[in-house]
Amino acid sequence: MIGVLIVLCSLHTGFAVTHTGKGCVTGSTGVRDLPEFVAVLMLDEETGAYFDSKTRELQIRLEWALNKVNDSQKYIHYFNVLISSAIPDLMNALQFAMSLYGHSGGIHTLQIMLGCEVSEDRKAGEFMKFGYDAEDFISLDISTLAWIAHSPQAGIICADWNNHIETAQFWKGILENECFALLKKLVEYDREILERKVPPEVSLLRRDPSSPVTCLATGFFPEGIVVSWQKDGEDLHEDVELLETLSNEDGTFQTRSRLTVSPADVKEHNYTCVVDHSSLEKNIIKPVTEEEIKTNQDPENSLPVGIIIAVVLAVLLVAIAAFAC
């Protein structure tokens, strides 16, 4: 479930020159194994920080970001206290949202998301929105400073907030100034890491002669990659299963594609796995032969990673307090 929440908080960056900083706080109720409070922060697809109400310990996932902070343990302790103090506010806000919908129990979530984008050192956009039960609830129109209700229940809150324009002005300033300045600084700190190109390592794996052949591409960056199969030089789409792309713990990615083929067909035809990635001058081509195939188990899924450094959490907590009022 925590992984699902992080995916919901993710915002895909369409171009390598565009960078996104995003924070997301989620409050939930009715899910036994899920922390009632989860805060995550993201820089593009990289995990920078994570906090939940079970551990109450801020985890900075990007080592380079941690190295930029002087006296990091004092810094982490400060945010542990600050974020923990906001948990009751978010849970009260969730209870208030539930009351607007007439919900007295069950599984429910409230999310607060905000962030900004830069493209080639210029502002590329800002956003702030609230979600209830994975549906749009309230969003801020930065250009008009109007709070937009996405449900009749949200209209009750927006009517009040739109009578106090200073709240929207405050958030516009945060998103257009503080968020942009911080994101630009982070990108400058680690532009080489964020915009690096790392080629994949490609292997063919199979448990036994009767099992599908797995083409594993791992250790590549950025995320976009194409893994395909050919039979006798022609593109092959039947009996092919492409699995999802996962994050490795070092910030690179891995993906797999499986080909179901009999040992007899492998001997009779020429099968190849073709990998295309932006880091490669030419495609990697692996022939499906006994010499290339390694008899092995499919690799364990790496833990997904992806978030921004913890200083933006303080901004999120102001949003929580504003909603709870």
Rank of each mutant, 00 (worst) to 15 (best):
I2M: 10
G3D: 09
V4Q: 13
L5Y: 05
I6R: 06
L11S: 12
L11Y: 12
L11T: 08
H19C: 06
T20P: 05
K22F: 08
C24H: 09
V25F: 05
T26F: 07
T29I: 07
R32G: 06
R32D: 14
D33I: 04
E36H: 13
L41P: 00
M42D: 01
M42P: 01
M42V: 02
L43N: 02
D44N: 15
T47D: 11
G48S: 03
A49D: 03
K54T: 14
Q59S: 10
L62Y: 06
K68V: 03
D71A: 11
N80T: 12
N80E: 14
S85K: 15
A86V: 05
A86W: 06
A86I: 08
L90E: 02
L90C: 03
A93E: 04
S99P: 05
S99I: 01
L100C: 03
G102F: 08
S104H: 14
G105P: 13
G105K: 15
G105Y: 14
H108E: 06
L110G: 07
L110A: 08
I112Y: 09
C116W: 01
D121M: 07
D121I: 01
D121S: 13
R122E: 10
K123F: 15
E126Q: 12
E126S: 13
E126W: 04
M128S: 09
K129Q: 12
A134R: 14
E135P: 01
L140T: 02
L140G: 02
S143M: 07
A146M: 12
W147L: 03
I148Q: 09
I148Y: 04
I148V: 15
H150K: 04
P152I: 09
Q153M: 15
I157C: 04
A159R: 11
D160W: 11
W161N: 05
W161A: 05
E166K: 13
Q169F: 05
G173M: 11
L175R: 03
A181C: 08
L182E: 13
L183I: 10
L183E: 01
K184D: 15
L186R: 11
E192C: 11
E195G: 09
E195I: 02
R196H: 09
R196M: 11
K197Y: 05
P200K: 02
E201C: 10
V202L: 12
V202R: 01
L205P: 02
P212R: 02
V213N: 01
G219R: 08
E223Q: 15
G224N: 15
V226T: 09
S228H: 01
W229Y: 10
W229M: 00
K231I: 00
G233S: 07
E234P: 06
H237Q: 11
L242E: 08
L242N: 08
E244W: 11
T245V: 10
S247D: 09
D250L: 09
L259N: 02
L259Y: 01
S262V: 00
A264L: 00
D265A: 00
H269D: 00
N270Y: 03
Y271V: 00
T272P: 11
C273H: 03
V275T: 07
D276G: 05
D276M: 12
D276A: 12
L280V: 03
K294R: 14
K294G: 02
N296I: 11
P299C: 09
E300F: 07
E300Q: 08
N301T: 10
S302M: 10
V305Q: 07
I307N: 06
I308G: 02
V312S: 07
L313W: 10
A314K: 14
L316C: 08
L316V: 08
I320K: 01
I320L: 14
I320M: 09
A321W: 04
A321L: 12
C325S: 14
